[in-house]
Simulated scan of single mutants.
Amino acid sequence: MEWNHKQLLDLGLQVTDSCLATVNESSDWSATGELRGQHFGDVVADEAGLQHLVDAGVNVFSEESGLLDQGSTVTAVLDPIDGSTNAAREIPYWTSAICLLQRGEPVAAVVRLSGSAGVFTAIRGQGAAFNGRKVVSSSTSLLKKSVVFVNGYPRHYLGWAQMRALGSAALEISLLAKGSGDAFIDCSDGLAVWDYLAAALILVEAGGVVDVQNDDLLAPTLDRGRRKVVAACNSQILNALMSEPGDASLHG
């Protein structure tokens, strides 16, 4: 089957809806002991989303179940639940995220928020939306006036006005797309491709910019490696962050 981009977006909407419909804060969020950070709720959500993708005949690269090759030109990069530690602690900041690649290039993305809080979508070359309404990233041009989302622990203050740490990279990067923040910095040991790819496409389509350590967003590497990510509402903020003393803590 030759998919068009709208069909792939619709598939992503179905998958993320099913992932979130199968779990809630009262689900079993204890650790499986199988994969780093994996909870039983993650596995349940993955099984629900995976069924749609298997039926559709597309390839899948999922955080929870790995690679499924069905010989398709389409590959779905799936994080059934991003922020499962939040879900386990009943902190209402978690999402289901999927990016659809066609012949290796990201073309459609969905980040659906828990609790019916909304859904971010994007089709490559057609912009980004939140709950169906077009969104654009912030026009903030000064780091000292920026609200910055942080994953991990920065080595020192980088000059922002305020910072936030919500515990879901997909959520935080997506929020930049509608101007709810101005930048995102990963100061951990890196993010996996399923953590950031869907949100990165959404942000880029909203006018933002994303820098991924040793990788190309237009032809992402699909593996379990971890890469540091810096995202911003525009190139001025990204450049300001990357040029700050200590930026080696981001990409070193």
Rank of each mutant, 00 (worst) to 15 (best):
M1Q: 03
W3T: 09
N4G: 11
N4F: 03
H5S: 13
K6C: 01
L8I: 12
D10G: 01
L11P: 14
L11E: 06
L11G: 05
L13M: 09
Q14A: 09
Q14P: 02
V15H: 00
C19D: 01
C19K: 07
C19M: 09
A21P: 02
T22M: 04
N24L: 10
S30N: 06
A31L: 14
T32K: 02
G33H: 10
G33M: 04
E34M: 08
R36A: 11
Q38D: 03
D42E: 08
V43N: 01
D46S: 14
E47V: 14
L50I: 02
L50Y: 01
H52M: 04
L53N: 03
L53M: 15
V54Y: 07
D55S: 08
D55E: 12
A56K: 03
G57T: 14
V58S: 08
V60I: 15
S62Q: 01
E64N: 07
S65A: 11
L67T: 06
Q70K: 07
G71I: 14
A76G: 02
D82W: 11
G83W: 05
G83R: 07
G83V: 06
I91N: 00
I91V: 15
Y93F: 15
W94M: 04
W94D: 00
W94H: 12
A97D: 11
I98R: 02
C99N: 05
L100Q: 09
Q102N: 05
R103F: 04
R103G: 10
E105M: 13
E105K: 15
P106N: 06
A109F: 10
A109S: 14
V110G: 05
L113F: 01
L113I: 08
S114T: 13
S114F: 14
A117Y: 01
A117Q: 15
N131V: 05
R133M: 13
V135F: 08
S138F: 02
S138M: 13
T140K: 10
S141C: 10
L142F: 11
L142Q: 14
L143P: 08
L143F: 09
K144W: 00
V147F: 00
V147W: 00
V147N: 06
V148G: 06
V148A: 09
N151A: 08
H156S: 15
W160A: 13
Q162M: 10
M163R: 10
A165F: 01
G167E: 06
S168A: 14
I173A: 07
K178R: 15
G181H: 02
G181K: 04
G181W: 04
F184N: 00
D186T: 07
D186S: 12
C187T: 14
C187R: 03
D189A: 09
G190T: 05
G190V: 11
G190P: 04
L191P: 13
A192R: 11
D195Q: 11
L197P: 13
A198Y: 01
A199L: 02
A199V: 04
A200H: 01
L201D: 04
I202R: 01
D216A: 05
L218C: 08
A219Q: 11
D223M: 03
D223N: 12
R227Y: 02
R227P: 15
K228F: 00
A231I: 13
S235E: 14
Q236T: 10
L238C: 09
N239S: 15
P245D: 08
G246R: 14
D247A: 15
L250I: 03
G252E: 03
